[in-house]
Design a protein around this nucleic acid. Structure first.
Lengths: 204, 204
DNA sequence: ACTTATACATTCACTGCTGTATGTATGTAA
DNA sequence: TTACATACATACAGCAGTGAATGTATAAGT
């Protein structure tokens, strides 16, 4: 075959990334060769190297297609909410539902967490993750502080601890869900988050 | 050099595993060659292949030397406790302290979580992790049920949700701490666990 | 209609790593 | 003291994977 239209090229690019998702998920990133990815995408390594400089760049492209859980939450949240706890709760639940529902997202985040080794090549992704984690942490702290000001937060919890606890629970639910590999873990996790937020609202 | 005494051989073996920890941590497992490990241990690949069949077996040996966080907790817990919440709390805190304190454990668990790709070769380790996670989950559920029976558990929480929430928080704290790479995250996490257990004790 | 850039496929040279085979000096048991 | 096993070091073969170079057919621009 030879040159295709721009649309075709874009389809090829997509096919390569799709194939990379499958192969990386099945075998791990470093154990997968670009030859395997190419075969899965029904092209040759030539096409892969045309679209991507190397495996790291392909990885990058794959990760850029999805939202990380924290980014999901940030999308849904505004700092000046009038119902901060409710907003945080629904954003958390929503983020879990997103992963539970979207197979691609689950695959890619699984690759990110369990099927690749974070090294310098992955620096961009690490930064992105850390940045969204940090932003989410400070935003949720603000929202918990607002809840406290509104008298809605149990005196047990100060905003900082609450935001850290929420982040830990979310990360734990996601990682655990990916390790177990069953959607039910996310559902259970969502219930935990519900109860957690209930317990945040009452005095102790 | 030539043959050493058994003690010397054991020291060599230790040195190789120590070196593997350093190299794997610094570069990731699959990017590290056994040549690099050997150099770091000041031996040749010959020695490495004498003591270990291949990289996977070396990895296995490295992981067998440490306790996983869940195993730490299981060590400290008995199902027939008279103060189940207090026991769970202190076991959780203890597990976090163990990782915060022990550099080796932190390194190895970091390798396990962030510097290696779980594939078939790692099946033994995966099984071990899943087993201890499952045992820990069911044990903590029993303990929460006991707390409930003793009237110590807030009506917000049922034993199952509480045990899932605790497990999620613990995993999240550990993973987050390893990702951030600062001991303070574990300390903060311990505070979160404290507050979490406080909030478990009161009615809502 | 002609040219040029594009979107690949094919080929090749090079490298790094693995696993194994072989060498060797020493501990140890008889 | 011999004889063998042990604990390595050294040497070698082979492959798998990368990246670049080259080939090529077609789309797009003029």
């Amino acid at each position: 075959m030879a040159r295709r239209t721009k649309d075709d090229a874009e389809k090829t690019r997509k096919a390569i990334i799709d194939a990379a998702e499958q192969v990386f998920f099945a075998q791990g990133v470093s154990r997968s060769s670009l030859e395997q990815v190419a075969r899965a995408a029904k092209v040759t390594r030539g096409a892969v190297y045309w679209h991507f400089k190397n495996k790291a760049e392909l990885c990058d492209a794959m990760l850029k297609r999805i939202f990380l859980p924290q980014e999901d939450m940030l999308e849904k949240l505004a700092a000046e909410s009038e119902s901060p706890l409710e907003d945080l709760r629904s954003a958390s639940i929503h983020a879990l539902e997103m992963i539970a529902r979207d197979k691609r997202r689950r695959r890619v985040v699984t690759i990110l967490y369990l099927r690749c080794e974070y090294m310098e090549e992955m620096l961009g992704i690490i930064r992105r993750r850390n940045a969204s984690k940090a932003r989410m942490l400070s935003l949720s702290e603000k929202l918990f502080a607002r809840a406290k000001a509104l008298g809605r937060l149990s005196p047990c919890w100060d905003p900082r601890r609450a935001s850290q606890a929420l982040q830990a629970m979310m990360i734990g639910i996601v990682v655990n869900g990916l390790e177990i590999g069953k959607k039910s873990v996310f559902t259970n996790g969502a219930s935990c988050i519900e109860v957690f937020f209930n317990s945040l609202q009452v005095r102790c």
